[in-house]
């Protein structure tokens, strides 16, 4: 439900970064989203498609990598997948520490630094 406002924050991060690098084109944005982040992939893609119109991100792709929820039991030295969000260690039943699944960050950008490239449709169109 809050994917639209999350996407607005993502746009701010990306636009800042583009300014820093004096870049104009973005081909792809890579996002990492944890299973526990309460973020829906489809809603993110939809928010992206709505917000990108008329911005420097128009035409860019959004790639979302899902990170499964995992916890670690110090007693058993066992890292395990949290099935149905349960934190208990499957070996001993103790409460483990959540080690992954809460991620929500922009991992990387694939950018075009603007040098004319014959394979780039944007460049050939503008000629």
């Amino acid at each position: 439900m809050h994917e639209l406002s999350l996407m607005q924050s993502i746009f701010e991060i990306v636009e800042d970064e583009l300014k820093n690098h004096e870049l104009v084109y973005v081909n792809q944005i890579k996002l990492k989203v944890g299973e526990l982040a309460a973020v829906q992939k489809e809603a993110m893609q939809f928010a992206f498609s709505v917000l990108q119109m008329g911005t420097v991100l128009e035409g860019a792709r959004l790639e979302i990598e899902y990170v499964p929820a995992e916890a670690y039991c110090a007693k058993c030295e066992h890292r395990y997948r949290m099935i149905k969000y349960r934190v208990f260690c499957p070996l001993c039943g103790n409460v483990g520490q959540i080690v992954s699944g809460k991620e929500l960050y922009v991992e990387s950008l694939e950018v075009n630094d603007g040098e004319r490239d014959q394979t780039c449709t944007k460049c050939t169109q503008s000629k």
């Binding site: 970064e17 960050y105 950008l109 694939e110 075009n112």
Partner: peptide, 8 residues
């Protein structure tokens, strides 16, 4: 040219 920028 296409390149990747790490952000995290």
């Amino acid at each position: 040219m296409v390149k990747e920028i790490k952000l995290v």
